[in-house]
Design a protein around this nucleic acid. Structure first.
Lengths: 192, 192
DNA sequence: AGGTAGGGAGAACGTTCTTTCTACTTCGAG
DNA sequence: CTCGAAGTAGAAAGAACGTTCTCCCTACCT
């Protein structure tokens, strides 16, 4: 019942995630991860089938963290429009943090182009969840179909995440949030 | 004066570009490029200092092609708003082409995270040109400062390019162009 | 007391990577 | 005619890669 769930495994996944995100999937070798996590090869291969499994676990953790952030933001909102704003605020805030290197999922597909690859599939699943979630939130604001606005929101998010590590993240976050306000404005006061 | 400029060099850069774009920078090895281009190692190292030089040449060619496309679209436009629309149409069209795998520059920074790396610097230069160009075009529509709208346009572009190879590119292109129309609308008829 | 899971340490495998090298051919310009 | 640039062909170096392996130690559970 003590269920340590392995301290070494946590260190392994933690440092692997940090390195993968900061430097890229192919750029980081197993040796680097083992050295930095102070874990031996045998231990790693006891917990993960291989490097690819580590990558998948890294993305799964990122997916879990994102869902938690979104759900927390939505839960704290007092109305439907504010729920959308909360998601946007979370993204804008995420861009500002030290060491931000873009979207872990978009960066991953840049390295795993094959659509049939497990990594690519994991990214697709995450993106489908996000698009569906945002579209659902937007549908509760106003009474017009929200599919286009959902895609619009995700497009802004993807662009903000991409540019956030290539330009001053402050103005990027501001631009993003103002653009989201534009979407909400158009939904609350439909075409003139 | 015959200046063949080397047929082998062209084949080399051409197939290297195709492979780099389709499969990623780190995923493609020199051997693959040499085999596919039917060029020997010695010839390649005669023309390029190394693989990194090939990557840089690939990005330089992509930069040149993009600038040409934008300039052609702008030149064909009959007024300032249509110039912006022409750029947007070019992007939306680019997303639809078979084999589209996202923005070559955004994909490149995903693999070369170090801001001091030549690849990263080349991407920054390309992006600065694009942002400046778009902001300049938008400044001619309406008479308000265009910096925010320029960033907004680029954000939409980055998002559209990122999503274009992860979802049905048709709706993505439509969403992008409609969002750009929103920017133009806001500039021609300022706040109510 | 003994079995077993988790971890440490490190050797070694075979592959692939980028790069360098030598040796021979081709061809056009001076 | 000759020189040199550009090409072919292939060996090989040297490093890094992901993976597998053996051996030993510790801690916990029964």
């Amino acid at each position: 019942m003590t269920r340590t769930v392995s301290d070494a495994r946590n260190r392994l996944l933690g440092t692997a995630s940090g390195l993968f995100y900061a430097e890229g999937l192919h750029s980081v070798g197993v040796d680097r991860i083992l050295a930095e996590a102070k874990v031996t090869r045998a231990t790693m291969y006891r917990h993960f089938a291989g490097k690819e499994d580590l990558v998948l676990a890294y993305l799964a953790e990122a997916d879990r963290a994102t869902r938690q952030n979104v759900e927390a933001g939505v839960a704290a909102a007092t109305n439907d429009a504010d729920a959308v704003r909360a998601v946007a605020r979370g993204i804008a805030g995420h861009i500002q943090i030290e060491g931000f290197r873009g979207c872990a999922f978009l960066n991953a597909v840049a390295e795993y182009a094959d659509p049939a690859h497990p990594v690519h599939i994991a990214v697709q699943a995450h993106r489908k969840w996000f698009l569906d979630t945002v579209t659902g939130l937007l549908a509760r604001v106003g009474d017009t179909p929200a599919e286009l606005d959902g895609r619009h929101f995700v497009m802004l998010r993807d662009g903000a995440m991409a540019a956030g590590c290539l330009a001053d993240p402050g103005p990027i976050g501001d631009t993003f949030r103002e653009a989201v306000e534009g979407i909400l404005r158009a939904r609350t006061a439909p075409q003139a």
